[in-house]
Simulated scan of single mutants.
Amino acid sequence: MVSQITNGIKVSVKANYIGSSVFNNYKVYNFTYRITIDNNSNDTAQLVTRHWEILDALNPVKYVDGVGVIGKKPIIKPGESYSYESYCSLFSPFGAMLGFYSMINLATATLFEVTIPRFKLYAPFAIN
C-alpha cells in the first residue's frame, strides 16, 4: 500500500492483479485498486474530478480525466474517509498509475488538487 498527504487529505492505494483476459485479440492483464481518502483537515471537502496517468510498459502513457469517481462526487467531512474500488487493464504485466483529484474546500469554496501517489501494477508471475 502507498499513501500520500496533500493539504490534510490522505490518499492510500492498494492494487491487486486479478488475472488476464483477451480484448480485441490481445492478451490484457487486469488489476483492481482500492483507494481510501481520509480527510485529516479541519474542513469538509468534496471530490469533483479525477486525473489519471496510466503507464503500461508496452504502450505510451494514457491520460484519463473525468467527473468524480465511480459515478460519485463524495463529500468527506473532517475525520471521515471515503473508499472505492476500480480497475485497470494493461497490455503488459507491468505498469503504474498516478494522478490527482480536484477537490473543493466547502468552507472556503476553494478548489485544490490532492495527489494520488504513484502505485505499481504488476502480475506476480512476471517478477523473478
Rank of each mutant, 00 (worst) to 15 (best):
M1S: 15
M1Y: 11
S3L: 04
I5L: 07
T6K: 01
N7I: 03
G8M: 07
G8C: 08
G8P: 05
I9V: 15
K10T: 13
V11D: 06
S12W: 05
V13A: 14
A15I: 14
A15R: 06
Y17D: 11
I18W: 04
I18S: 02
S20H: 11
S20D: 10
F23K: 12
F23M: 10
N24R: 11
N25H: 09
K27T: 10
V28Y: 03
F31W: 07
T32N: 13
Y33W: 11
I37G: 04
I37V: 15
D38A: 08
N39I: 04
N39M: 00
N39E: 06
S41E: 04
N42L: 13
N42C: 05
D43S: 15
Q46V: 11
L47D: 05
T49C: 02
H51W: 06
W52R: 03
W52H: 05
I54K: 05
I54W: 01
L55R: 09
L55M: 12
D56E: 03
A57G: 02
A57N: 09
L58M: 07
L58P: 00
N59V: 03
P60W: 08
P60L: 09
V61D: 09
V61Q: 11
K62E: 06
Y63K: 11
Y63C: 01
Y63W: 03
V64Q: 08
V64I: 10
D65A: 03
D65H: 00
G66P: 06
G66I: 05
V67T: 14
V69W: 03
G71N: 06
K72S: 13
K72G: 00
P74R: 00
I75T: 15
I76M: 08
K77Q: 15
P78Q: 11
G79A: 02
E80S: 12
E80G: 04
S83T: 13
S83G: 09
Y84D: 02
Y84Q: 02
E85Y: 06
S86M: 01
Y87H: 12
S89G: 05
S89D: 08
F91P: 01
F91G: 12
F91A: 04
P93K: 11
G95P: 07
M97R: 09
F100Q: 09
F100N: 11
S102M: 08
L106T: 07
L106S: 02
A107V: 02
T108E: 02
T108P: 00
T110K: 08
T110W: 01
L111P: 07
F112C: 01
F112Q: 08
E113N: 13
E113G: 10
T115Q: 12
I116H: 04
R118Y: 10
R118S: 14
R118A: 15
R118K: 15
K120M: 14
K120P: 00
K120D: 15
L121V: 10
P124Q: 10
P124A: 07
F125G: 01
I127H: 01
